[in-house]
Nucleic acid binder design. Structure first.
Lengths: 193, 193, 193, 193
DNA sequence: TTATAATCGAGACGGTACGTCACGTCTTAGT
DNA sequence: ACTAAGACGTGACGTACCGTCTCGATTATAA
């Protein structure tokens, strides 16, 4: 998945190039807000960004790369590991972070992408899943290492359920998850505190 | 969502009409197997079915209706309530049923649809979600009514997690859920037996 | 070209059949007024007539036959020979008659058809041309027979010009021909009175 | 009406673009020969030209523009004024020119278009009429200015008749106008030389 | 008065063409 | 070194008519 740099080798003209990148990024987010993840088109992004369509294709040859580049910052953010010292604490932090991100266009992009089954976005989907689920899984591993939970598979499933339950929440229940919902999920997969 | 009959009243030409419906249905499933849910096109279905494209449009004006019609049987199947007498038993049945269905093209259609965020499929998505999640939720309600679980919200979340965890399983973990996975999920959301 | 009777052999069921024929005929004229000659579709006529599309096809297998049937009365009217006793008088009568007819939908149908180059309407076009131009040509022949004009070819051309000039008048000049225009045409092709 | 160049400013790719334009133009003429004016379809032209259908739509958004572009050269040719010094001479030149053009596909396109009553071609029809009839009318005006004819309306009608008579000739009489026919028309509308 | 044949309404289908949208690629000109 | 601009092929979309077919329901006349 492309990072937010040009694919062709060579010097980057700081000013102009960076401007293009920024405008395209902003345009993608605006389009997500306007039309939703599935409604994004290169044409639309180009127009919204005031940039030529070919310019986008040059920099991000596929839609997956474009979206991946836009999602990169939030992916990085969601990819970091918390360190509360307890599985319960880690999961709660991760869930709240994920929930909060879904309120932003980048987050919507991410969670819609994770659920998507489009072949053309396979790269993005996999990468986004791995990096977003990662901290959940590592929290589980730490819990096992710390002896909080004996059964590693059990810990992994708990992490998976917390993640999946949250990712599917709005799609299935029609409203974003609240703070209490996060706590409920947590107590359901880990038992009452 | 259309059932697998003509929208207008009265299918007359039992023979020919029924044949068309059957062939289109089969073609949709074949295309799902071949290209995946997101790869389905009316053109492709028409060709695979050996039927004219306009014939499909006449009967199912939107893609959501076409897919909904094809999904109807499995929706009906997954929409029935088990009656094992216990929440645990009900959930296990529901999960296994859902897991098994995912191995068939109709099931793949369904679970991919449920995760999809395509605007054009909103109808299908909602309907599929409601009908497939329904038995999970009703099982939770019965559990509450029976006094198995005191907290209704807690029961509902358990149902939601079992459902979501299963629907996202393959997408996120790369392989279909096994029997042991179902049990693990069950023990995670309801506690050990 | 079909007359306004059923093509299949057998008895005509006076009431119902006649009603259908009348309503279709009225619908064709209404559609000509609404959409113009080129805008006529069988679908549209059927809807406007409150008659099933297949009923129209049964009776008039081609569009040319349908239109021909509708045009028949006016064709008959325009096909009769005047007898003023002079070429000049005959032509004037014929021109005025043709001009007047163009104000009615049937007449518009006719003159648009005569100018049309649609292959599917070849039958109609030929028939309409022959029958409408006929009186002009016969008037020329009578003039020659009477000795009014010596040169038969010359007389025929005069008839042709009067006819063509009138048929093209509105199309080219943007407004229907007036009485004075008819006289001008007459004096142009036959010389001043 | 579009000229035979791109609608947007500046054709850049002299080679490729020009080639496409040429091939489409040739294809239109070929299709006219093959199927007649009324039988022309964008699909057919695209196939005959070995060009994609959307390419045609991009360049000529409507059929009227496409046909207008193809007709442009002959329109330009038929739009020039002769200067024989006499009404009679001018008309004869104009008639022969028009008659000759009808032997070529472009000319057939033109005269069929002029007679057409299709709403979608209104632009083309008007433009073609105006530009083709124009020289006839201006010849009449010059005749009046020169004092050849006293009555301007009379001169205009003579021009109109010569034009209409010729345009309708083949449609009504079944064979193209010969040289002698042109002379006959001339003598009919202007009197013997 | 009832058969019976003609006719109609309704639904469906295959097919052609339409005009549009989005994709991804290429080339040339300009900055 | 990039970007803008224009063009193109390709595939899919959803719609409008065309002409044909079959079935079931009427209906008007002829037995």
């Amino acid at each position: 998945m492309a990072e937010l740099t040009r694919r062709t080798s060579g010097v980057r003209h700081g000013g102009r190039s960076a401007q293009v990148v920024d405008r395209v990024r902003a345009a993608v987010l605006a389009e997500i807000t306007r039309l939703g993840f599935a409604g994004i088109t290169i044409d639309g992004v180009a127009k919204a960004a005031g940039v030529n369509r070919t310019t986008i294709y040059r920099r991000w040859p596929t839609k997956a790369e474009l979206l991946g580049a836009v999602a990169e910052p939030i992916l990085a953010e969601l990819g970091t590991d918390p360190a509360t010292g307890s599985f319960r604490g880690d999961l709660l932090v991760l869930m709240r972070r994920l929930r909060d991100s879904a309120a932003r266009p980048e987050g919507r992009l991410l969670s819609d992408a994770i659920r998507s089954s489009a072949a053309e976005l396979q790269d993005l989907v996999t990468r986004a899943s791995v990096r977003t689920l990662g901290p959940f899984e590592r929290a589980a591993e730490r819990a096992v290492a710390r002896g909080e939970i004996g059964d590693a598979a059990r810990a992994a499933v708990a992490a998976h359920l917390a993640f999946s339950g949250l990712v599917m929440w709005e799609q299935v229940r029609g409203a974003p998850a609240g703070d209490a919902d996060c706590v409920l999920i947590l107590e359901t997969v880990l038992g009452p505190a």
